Amino acid sequence: MMNEWIPIPGTNKDRLITVALEEFSKKGYKGVNITELAEKANMTTGAVYHHFGSKAKLYEVIRTEIEQRILDRMEGAASLFDNPSEAMKAAMISGMDFVTKNDFSHLISEPNPSNRKDKIERFLSDLNAINDLPIELVLIASWRSIIKGIANKQITIKQGKDLINWLFQKESM
C-alpha cells in the first residue's frame, strides 16, 4: 500500500513537496510564507491547501520524511556498536553529517511545531542504557544546538563532531 503523502513524480503535489523541502530547509517553519512557497512552485495558495490542508500539515510531511532519512543513517551507524554510548555517539555524528551535507540544518535544529516526540528522540531514548536517567533529552537538545550552530556558521562541522565526542567522554570515578 502506498502512503498517501508519497507524490507521483511530476505532479503538483510532488512539486509542492520539493519546493517546501527547499524552503523549510532554508528558512525553518516560521520563515516560510505559503504565498511565496506557492509562487515558487508556480501554483496558487489554494493548491497548497488542497493538497495539504495547512502550512503545519505540509511542514509535518516534510519533517517526517527528513527525520526518517536521518533515522535510517543513525540506525545504521548505531548498529555497528554493542556499547550503547558508542552507538549513540556514532548515530549522532552520522545524523549530523547527513543533515549538514544536505542543508537540512534549519529544518531539523528547530523545535517541531506539532510538539510531538520525533523519531530521532525516540531512537536515542531506546538506545539509552541508563533508563532511570533520560539522557536523550540532553543529547537531542545538544545535537540540535550543534546543528543550529553549524547552520548559523557559529561552529564548523569538525567542531560539531568534537562537541559530540566531548559529550560522550567519561571521567574515571
Results as ranks from 00 to 15, higher is better:
residue 2 M to T: 15
residue 3 N to V: 11
residue 5 W to G: 02
residue 5 W to Y: 07
residue 5 W to P: 00
residue 8 I to W: 11
residue 8 I to A: 10
residue 9 P to A: 11
residue 10 G to L: 06
residue 12 N to F: 10
residue 13 K to G: 06
residue 14 D to H: 05
residue 17 I to C: 14
residue 18 T to C: 10
residue 22 E to L: 00
residue 24 F to H: 09
residue 25 S to T: 09
residue 25 S to Q: 08
residue 28 G to V: 05
residue 29 Y to Q: 05
residue 31 G to C: 05
residue 34 I to A: 14
residue 36 E to K: 15
residue 36 E to N: 15
residue 40 K to R: 15
residue 40 K to P: 00
residue 44 T to N: 13
residue 44 T to M: 12
residue 46 G to C: 03
residue 47 A to S: 13
residue 48 V to S: 06
residue 49 Y to N: 12
residue 51 H to N: 02
residue 52 F to M: 13
residue 53 G to K: 03
residue 57 K to E: 14
residue 58 L to P: 12
residue 58 L to K: 08
residue 59 Y to T: 03
residue 60 E to L: 12
residue 61 V to H: 12
residue 63 R to E: 01
residue 64 T to S: 15
residue 67 E to Q: 07
residue 68 Q to C: 01
residue 68 Q to D: 12
residue 69 R to V: 00
residue 69 R to W: 09
residue 70 I to W: 02
residue 71 L to V: 08
residue 72 D to Y: 01
residue 74 M to A: 02
residue 74 M to H: 08
residue 74 M to I: 03
residue 76 G to S: 04
residue 78 A to I: 00
residue 79 S to G: 12
residue 80 L to E: 06
residue 80 L to G: 05
residue 81 F to S: 06
residue 81 F to C: 10
residue 81 F to T: 02
residue 83 N to S: 00
residue 84 P to T: 08
residue 85 S to W: 04
residue 85 S to N: 10
residue 87 A to Y: 11
residue 88 M to R: 11
residue 88 M to S: 13
residue 89 K to W: 00
residue 90 A to S: 02
residue 90 A to V: 10
residue 92 M to L: 01
residue 96 M to Q: 12
residue 96 M to F: 00
residue 96 M to D: 04
residue 96 M to K: 11
residue 97 D to H: 02
residue 97 D to P: 10
residue 97 D to E: 06
residue 98 F to M: 06
residue 98 F to Y: 05
residue 99 V to S: 08
residue 99 V to E: 08
residue 100 T to N: 10
residue 100 T to W: 03
residue 101 K to V: 04
residue 101 K to N: 10
residue 103 D to M: 02
residue 104 F to H: 15
residue 108 I to T: 12
residue 111 P to Y: 00
residue 111 P to E: 04
residue 114 S to Y: 13
residue 114 S to M: 11
residue 118 D to P: 01
residue 120 I to W: 03
residue 121 E to S: 12
residue 123 F to Y: 13
residue 127 L to F: 01
residue 127 L to V: 05
residue 128 N to S: 08
residue 133 L to R: 03
residue 133 L to F: 08
residue 134 P to D: 09
residue 135 I to T: 04
residue 135 I to K: 02
residue 137 L to M: 00
residue 137 L to E: 02
residue 138 V to H: 15
residue 138 V to Y: 15
residue 139 L to V: 01
residue 140 I to T: 13
residue 143 W to V: 03
residue 145 S to Y: 13
residue 150 I to M: 03
residue 153 K to S: 01
residue 155 I to D: 08
residue 157 I to L: 15
residue 157 I to K: 15
residue 158 K to H: 07
residue 160 G to N: 08
residue 162 D to T: 06
residue 162 D to Q: 15
residue 163 L to H: 07
residue 163 L to V: 00
residue 165 N to C: 12
residue 165 N to R: 14
residue 166 W to G: 06
residue 171 E to H: 07
